[in-house]
Amino acid sequence: MRLVDFFKKKTSSDIAKDRLKLVLVSDRASCSPEVMEKIKNDIINVLQKYVEIDQSGLDIKITQMEAEGDANETGPALYANIPIRSMRHTD
């Protein structure tokens, strides 16, 4: 946020636009549970080539995250927390 913006009071139309941008990001990013399940399975399949995964501790979802370099902008992001039991050594 610039210093000038700090002193300028936000109008209600500014607030409307900001709220709208946020709500549209999550509206557009939301995908059906079936698609989410497919993404999850595909990620697991790829990773299992290299590591052994603790499937019970798996957490994958789409969330809001601050865009790089600008704390005022947010965008959809795929959040994945995948506990690894051990590495597979193939070679």
């Binding site: 109008t11 209600s12 139309s13 500014d14 409307a16 636009k17 709208l20 941008k21």
Partner: peptide, 16 residues
């Protein structure tokens, strides 16, 4: 209302 900052402009709507 647009003049007083209490309604989004058409440009605002097109932008989002």
């Amino acid at each position: 209302m647009v003049k007083h900052g209490n309604m989004m402009t058409a440009e605002d709507v097109v932008e989002v």
